[in-house]
Design a protein around this nucleic acid. Structure first.
Lengths: 160, 160
DNA sequence: CCTAATTGACAAGTATACTTATCATAAGTA
DNA sequence: TACTTATGATAAGTATACTTGTCAATTAGG
């Protein structure tokens, strides 16, 4: 069997762990209080205001049940509001509040810095190549995930 | 700000999600019941029998508290035993049972198959390059993780 | 030797990230 | 229209994956 330390699964998990750790550290240093999924939800909601929870989950590739809890916490922070849809009373329509938009704008530069720091060990060319390979592999594996990405086609072309 | 779908953090998370999903599906199909971290713990313990929990956590780059719960569940399954160390009464020495060794041996080929399936969209050359880049980035980011890898130097040379 | 700092393990709390099941509502078909 | 299926949301349960705090035991320094 191949060495644990050479397994794609192990290395992906390590990079995810590093990513989450750097994200938390940078957010904390900036005096902000958003988790990665909370940021993703705010960003997607800003671009697609008025979608329901299930649609938002698809836009950022999260399980609907998981996203329900995330939305709970964002609502508690006053960053978004839930309204019952007028056309489908099962659905909850989500909208950012001005506070939510402000929190998102504050977070954007911090999140950009996180992306650079987590790949600090790679040259620029290597980062580009890693990004290309991850994008290709993630696209190919989308259906194998429990929560496939369901984004507008225009936003996820086949190659980066 | 760069597109969410092009962010390293997002793509890493997606690949992790796909990895975990494929792992669970393959394990289930094989009639086995191990999670990724449980497998990693068994594999590391098989190679380093008799280490304590904190050392095992370092060997697979997990938080000590998290690993405590993992070990609880492996103990409940009868895959390992905990003994108080004779040289340090704070420490719990871990050893695989024959059932644990058997479960590990059954899992190995399944886990190997998972590694291939999660990168199904890439050519062999691309997989090798992705692995190299992930290894390099993970090594560089090790200290930025909350639970750095503390493996014997011989088992993690700088390049794969 | 004695105090201080460290370490191994665990408790409690938070936040994902899933599972299955349930409920209400919608949409489809006969 | 009646029946069936599908869907949006939530509840309950499991398993990470961390945080801080506590306790006991060990080690290091003076």
């Amino acid at each position: 069997m191949r060495d644990l330390y050479r397994m794609p699964g192990h290395l992906i998990r390590r990079m995810h762990q590093i990513s989450v750790s750097v994200f938390a550290a940078r957010m904390r240093a900036a005096g902000q209080d958003l988790t990665p999924v909370q940021f993703a939800a705010l960003a997607a909601l800003s671009a697609h205001s008025g979608v329901d929870q299930a649609t938002l989950a698809g836009l950022i590739a999260y399980d609907r049940v998981t996203l329900g809890g995330v939305v709970d916490r964002l609502e508690a922070k006053g960053y978004l509001v839930r309204e019952v849809s007028e056309t489908d009373r099962r659905a909850r329509i989500l909208r950012l509040t001005p506070e939510g938009e402000a929190a998102l704008d504050r977070a954007r530069p911090v999140v950009d810095a996180v992306q650079d720091e987590m790949l600090a060990g790679l040259t620029r060319a290597e980062r580009d190549e890693l990004l290309r390979l991850l994008h290709k592999a993630a696209e190919a594996g989308n259906a194998r995930s429990r929560a496939p990405l369901r984004a507008p086609q225009a936003e996820r072309p086949a190659q980066g």
